[in-house]
């Protein structure tokens, strides 16, 4: 069974005070996430990641489309006891302590009274807040609030967890811990849907990623496939007017930009390539392993195609005053 089935969800905001304009925050989105999958939702600022999550949580209502979560309609109240949600920059009741907040949320999620406080302590320990559990949340730092947010998202042992930028605001240790936590959730067989800007996190954690830009899903790919393609390559950059013949015969893909040449070739050819440069008397600028294939994929997907550009212009024309 699919854990999440998004069926052409669309969200259009009316912006402007006097002459209202339509703003499409999310173009009809169709996406299926399988059970047990860790899915990364990537995209630049303002792409529509948070909008998608808020739609799925029922915090805002779609202008069109629907979604099914764990086989139920997304506004079926039964869904909510089986999912956890970490909002972007979470904020909580600041008159409560972390312990009281989790206890309250446990009550609302129907965690049985017996064993509830043990569960709360366990979650506090899991996000490293045992020492500040009794302090009022108004005194918490941003990263500490983020940790509380993670704890409340997994408190009631949900099957499916939605995390909006789970690493944001965390120190390096915190990031590491969140990565471990997501790995752990995967081992427990949970489905995780999270948004992020950090490609290395996505690459390390996800089974699949989706790339969204300007409210439009640009592509979905399995990390395993993306990374197998370009692994074990190096990139060398050096001063030259044209690509030396010796390099091409080593199987390099090279291009000239200005007075520099950028060549990508198999790792095993590194010494041979440097030998070519030395023989031709060319000055080496850098030699690096090829950047992550996900990054390449991401950047490629963000470039608008001509068709997409046309569609957008048409939509903007339709944005009439109301």
């Amino acid at each position: 069974m699919a854990a999440i089935e998004i069926l052409d969800l669309e969200k259009c905001y009316l912006v402007g005070f006097w002459r209202k304009r339509r703003k499409l925050a999310l173009r009809p989105l169709r996406l299926t996430i399988e059970e047990g999958e860790v899915f990364g939702f990537l995209g630049p600022n303002g792409a529509g990641k948070t909008t998608t999550l808020k739609l799925l949580m029922g915090l805002v209502f779609p202008t069109a489309g629907s979604a099914r979560i764990l086989g139920m309609d997304m506004d079926d109240p039964r869904v909510k006891s089986q999912i956890g949600f970490l909002p972007e920059q979470p904020y909580f009741y600041d008159h409560l302590s972390a312990r009281e907040l989790l206890n309250y949320f446990g009550q609302l999620s129907g965690v049985p009274a017996k064993g509830r406080s043990a569960r709360v302590e366990q979650m506090l320990a899991r996000v490293g807040l045992s020492d500040s559990a009794g302090m009022q949340l108004r005194k918490f730092s941003k990263g500490m609030l983020q940790r509380v947010g993670l704890a409340q998202a997994i408190l009631h042992d949900p099957k499916l967890v939605f995390l909006d930028e789970p690493m944001s605001g965390l120190d390096p240790m915190g990031r590491r811990e969140v990565r471990d936590l997501i790995q752990q959730l995967r081992h427990e067989g949970k489905t995780v849907f999270f948004s992020t800007h950090i490609l290395s996190d996505a690459e390390a954690l996800c089974d699949r990623v989706g790339i969204i830009h300007q409210g439009e899903l640009r592509g979905v790919g399995a990390i395993a496939e993306l990374t197998s393609e370009r692994q074990g390559k190096i990139e060398i950059i050096f001063h030259a007017q044209k690509v030396p013949a010796g390099l091409t015969s080593l199987g390099a893909e090279a291009r000239v930009s200005g007075d520099m040449v950028n060549a990508v070739l198999p790792e095993g050819q590194q010494d041979a390539a440097l030998e070519v440069l030395r023989r031709d008397g060319l000055k080496l600028i850098s030699l690096t392993p090829v950047r992550s294939s996900l990054e390449e994929y991401y950047i490629q997907k963000l470039r608008p195609t001509d068709v997409q550009r046309e569609v957008r212009q048409e939509d903007d024309r339709k944005g009439v005053g109301v």
């Binding site: 915090l59 949600f85 009741y93 999620s109």
Partner: peptide, 14 residues
């Protein structure tokens, strides 16, 4: 305004 509602309404609370 403070968005304290997000984590309440994402629970089984109508």
């Amino acid at each position: 305004d403070k968005r304290t509602l997000y984590t309440v309404l994402s629970r089984p609370v109508r």
